[in-house]
Design a protein around this nucleic acid. Sequence first.
RNA 1: GCCUUGGUGGCGGAAUUGGUAGACGCGCUGGAUUCAAAAUCCAGUUCUUUCGAGAGUGUGGGUUCGAUUCCCACCCAAGGUACCA
Length: 937
Amino acid sequence: MGYPFQEIEKKWQAFWAEKQTYHVVHSSDKPKFYVLDMFPYPSGAGLHVGHPLGYIASDIVARYKRHKGFNVLHPQGYDSFGLPAEQYAIQTGQHPAITTETNINRYREQLDRMGFSFDWSREVRTSDPSYYRWTQWIFSLLFDSWYDKKENKARPISTLLSHLQQKGTKDLFAVCDDDTLEISASTWQAMAPSDQEAYLLHFRLTYLAETEVNWCPALGTVLANDEVVQGVSERGGHPVERKKMKQWSMRISAFSDRLLEGLNTIDWPDPLKEMQRNWIGKSVGAQVRFAVENSSLNIEVFTTRPDTLFGVTFLTLAPEHDWVEQLTTSSQAADVSAYIIKASQRSERERMSDVTQISGVFTGSYAIHPLTNERVPIWIGDYVLSGYGTGAVMAVPCGDQRDYNFATHFDLPIKNIFHDIAIDKEAFTSKENVVIANSDFLNGLSCKAATKKVIERLSELDAGEGAITYRLRDAVFSRQRYWGEPIPVYYVNDQPQLVPDSCLPLQLPEVSKYLPTEDGAPPLGNADEWAWDTENKCVVSNKKIDNKSIFPLEKNTMPGWAGSSWYFNRYMDANNTEAFASKEALNYWREVDLYLGGSEHATGHLLYSRFWQYFMYDLGLVPVENFAKKLINQGMILGESAFIYRLKDTQTYISKGLCDGKDVVPVHVDISLVSTQNELDIEGLRKWQPHFSDAGFELENGVYVVGREVEKMSKSKYNVVNPDAICDQYGADTLRMYEMFLGPIEQAKPWNTAGISGVSNFLNKLWRLFHQDEAFAISDDQPTKESLKTLHKTIDKVTQDIEQFSLNTTVSAFMIAVNDLTAQKCNQRLILEPLTVLLAPFAPHICEELWALLGKETSITTASYPVANPEYLKDDSKEYPISFNGKMRFTLKLPTSLTKDEIEIAVLQDERTLSYLDGNAPKKIIIVPNKIVNIVI
RNA sequence: GCCUUGGUGGCGGAAUUGGUAGACGCGCUGGAUUCAAAAUCCAGUUCUUUCGAGAGUGUGGGUUCGAUUCCCACCCAAGGUACCA
């Protein structure tokens, strides 16, 4: 029989809760260690076995660090604003707050069963007004700040105001979304207040601007690219169009360079840093202006290859480019407008991924080449994206493959400007080993030299200059959703005004329904009370808006990432009502020492959080620039989904083996309806969902075989494995160790319960080793040298592995140790005691129990970590370095007990060693320990 | 399409970073114990094989005395791709 894990786990969980074992305070003479998990979104499906993977790993580190003498902050909370709760509300009318509360309670129950050492007194919930009050406050700060390029930091808007008041834009180096805003101090002073406010929006770090979105008129809402499939909405199949809408944006682009440079100072995984680098996408090149023929317009393009300027044979604008209409000649108007409509129906994602399909249209206008004065036709093509660079490119077919394809497709000229390079099949895109030709004053130059020279010439002509652009775009911050933080803004004469700090939180109003209003306003438009009374400083009924002091409030809410961009700071002082965290707490905990979470957040949460932290650092609100010193990506635990295949347009499902060549639609079915042999329980399926009750099934060999696919675990894919069931059957300690044993923490892996008995056996074995006939049995004798060796080697291995975060091999090391100790019949106190502490981070309940059985009065959490005695780590073998012809080097590992002569024989008997030597077996090998060896052939 | 990661027995994975591939665990096979089963313990387990040996780390090349490891090309899977979290 196994050890009584159910009893033990319950007992110690209650003990820890009662004693508040994991409650942490920041006055401590110990060094601090802050280990954090990315907090979960509390979904209706409950916690699945994928969630705890990271939590277990971080809990192991937290417990390990406590044993090592650190004051450990290990909190947990919930990212509780989100779309699923809102969608559930739309379907059922249930308020999202209620759903969220229910889900959180369930999560907590599940988390508590796994014996995590979280300090729950610091729990945060992003949807709690006491939390989002500070999210709104940070929004206000962003609104009230601008970016000073000279000091390279964010500064309060008041400093900008005084600059404008005194000098206008003279000597002003500010990040701004429009270069044509130069004004003098007197002009500024003469501006009407509302004009001044409109003007300031171009500088504020959060601002209102027109942005392109996927608009679905039928649903009355904006959709993510993900939700648009082949031009129609995923839900309902309604048409979707690209449309400009006035939205709040965050000026993250102002921080591009710092976000890029900062990567060099943090210990984050290289692939993740690389993803962020590529996402920020710094390109060095030039802006070139092409005058439009018979017009005052100058089309500005950005290019990374100014050296190829003489190879330009046409310009291409994005279909959304502001000047498309003006540039289109009457003869081309019909074609152009048809093309624009067509392009607006394709999502950005589609346009980027589909490179085989070339489309475009001629505007009828021509630009003038700034150097040759040749006429260059202006085209429109959807391979140019409006969001990047200037939304216009100079096309150099010989040097860019997309330009080449476009030119070939529309039969536009291709001019070769590379010396001795054939371009009749494809473009030549490399910058290496090229000599520019056919390019006037650039002839004979390398890429680099030509780039420099052409930029000089363009500057002289005032037709361009060197420039750097970033792929990183400002982040759209408005959501037409109910279940998010209200944006603390009201409008006076259409100009945004902040709801005063003292009035925060601006709480979510009650609404009659959670859908957009009929005239397309966000769900908050359904609230009766959603206007701001500036006199009484409170939210009042919309009906009073005509009143002089009452103004409409912003109806959009914040996106999911708002609350998660600063929560790590809140944990430092989670219950503070005066500030987002006290200065003392911030200065003590400073930053996260180890942050664990999935790499799927690489370019979202992890970039936004860095941005907000930089911003808050600039304002002196936090003591460090980078919020997380070290980050580890945990791989997702994937589910194995099961599919049945419906024959198209019928209610017949055919077994997997019979699908070949038939038009079938795969349908997810619940994995609990499928056997390990992939056979479907058809009766179970009929009961599971009513619409299967009259379905037909075509079987093979008498059974219905399902298809399997590894996917993200998700309720909608019916592939969720619940940890509760595992805890019931095997216990939390087994689950914890098994999840670690499953494979490297960073790697994604499919869940498979089959192997769990191995870990369960291991814990039982450990228990049995120190028990006889159900009673704790331990010897006070001195352990044998062999047992001490086993112990100390395990201490050494386990410690190294935890430090390197190789937790799966750690579990193996424990298994080997217990196997060895069992074989040695070792049940000495002097072995068990350190072993218990060593194992406690992984299996805290059983270790706490053993600890108590050893007669210890305190919790094992306070025990100090064992140190390996090098005396017992010594290897019986010795390494002998060998070199051959001064070129090849390898080492021989031989037992130390061998004499000199025996070594020689041992080497000659080692066939593998001999075969290294170029096929020739050496006749004699002379070994002098620790010295290089002579080999005679 | 683009960016990032991964591909090793029947399965999850290990391999000191270029030096005996398959640690540890699951599963399977055989044995011990048992009236029997569960549990436990012991042994075996990459594949092919004419039992000599041969093949083998997604595929095809390359570098090297030697490649799971380094280089090139390709195939497949996962994550992200800016409004899922």
